[in-house]
Each structure stands twice: as C-alpha cells, then as structure tokens.
Simulated assay, not measured.
Amino acid sequence: MAYQQYQAYQNNSVNTATPAELTLMLYNGSLKFIKRAKKAMEEKNYQERNVMIQKTQNIIRELMVTLEPSAPITKQMMPLYEFAYHCLTQANVKNDMTQIEQAEEILIQFRDTWKEIIKQERIRQHGKGVKL
C-alpha cells in the first residue's frame, strides 16, 4: 500500500513538473545512480555497478538530445556531457573509481547550476525564493 502511494506521488511529480524541474530530476537521478554504482564498485558487485552506470549513461544521453543544437551554450555543454559519458564507460570497463568520480563531479556542477537557475527564475517570477 505505501509503495503504491509512493509510486502515485512520483508519477504526479513527473506529470506536473515544469521542463526545468524535469531536468533537475534527471540530474538528481543520475547522481543517485552514480552513488549506487560507487557502492556496488566498493562491494565488488559488478553486475549492479554495470546496471547503475548504464542508467546514468542513459540519463546523460537524454540530456544530450534535449540540447538545442543552435544554442551557443550547447557548444559548451555537449563536450562536458560527452566527457562524463566517456568517464562512465571507462569506470565500467576498468572498474575505476576515479573515472566515476570525475563524471560525478561534472553532474554535480550541472545539477547545482540548474538548481540555482530554477531558484533565480522563481525569484524573478514570484519575488521570493522557493526551496528546491
């Protein structure tokens, strides 16, 4: 019962989120999967590590395809996404914690920047901050 209520809440959150909030959810999801991949790596659970890294890579691919090709910021963001994706591939192939941590750092920076953008937009629209 509680799980069904949680699922309903999650579905409602996604269905009512703005595009900016959906992007933030993707960043948060990618970081959650990286955390799980790191834990699996420490526990030598290679199958779980592989699944979590692939989930993170899927999110990065989604973020990449949502970039507007003609936007100037795309030229700055795309290489960082590509680098994070490559780091995750290397982390998976070589079981390399350093590589996964490099990808994590990039995603943390993107997430934190995105949170600040949303916050500033809410302040601009409503004249006050809203906690994310």
Rank of each mutant, 00 (worst) to 15 (best):
K75H: 12
I118C: 06
K32S: 06
E82Q: 14
L24F: 10
E21C: 04
Y85K: 07
R36H: 14
M78G: 01
A71N: 14
A84V: 08
N58R: 07
I108M: 04
I100E: 01
R61C: 02
R36F: 10
S70D: 13
N58T: 08
I73Q: 14
E105F: 02
E48D: 11
K55A: 05
A40W: 07
Y81S: 03
V130C: 00
I34N: 11
L24P: 08
K32G: 03
R122K: 14
Q57V: 03
A8H: 13
W114F: 07
Q4T: 07
P19C: 12
I34E: 12
T98G: 01
K128R: 13
Q99S: 14
M97D: 13
F83Y: 14
S13F: 03
N45D: 15
L63A: 04
L31P: 08
S70M: 05
N58S: 11
H126K: 11
I108S: 01
C87R: 15
M52A: 08
W114N: 02
T113H: 08
K131P: 00
K115F: 01
L88N: 07
E48P: 00
L80A: 04
I118G: 05
Q102E: 14
V130N: 01
I53N: 07
T56F: 02
L26P: 09
A17Y: 08
Q76F: 13
R111S: 13
K128F: 09
N95P: 00
M78R: 11
R61L: 10
V93A: 08
H126R: 05
L88R: 08
R36K: 15
L24M: 12
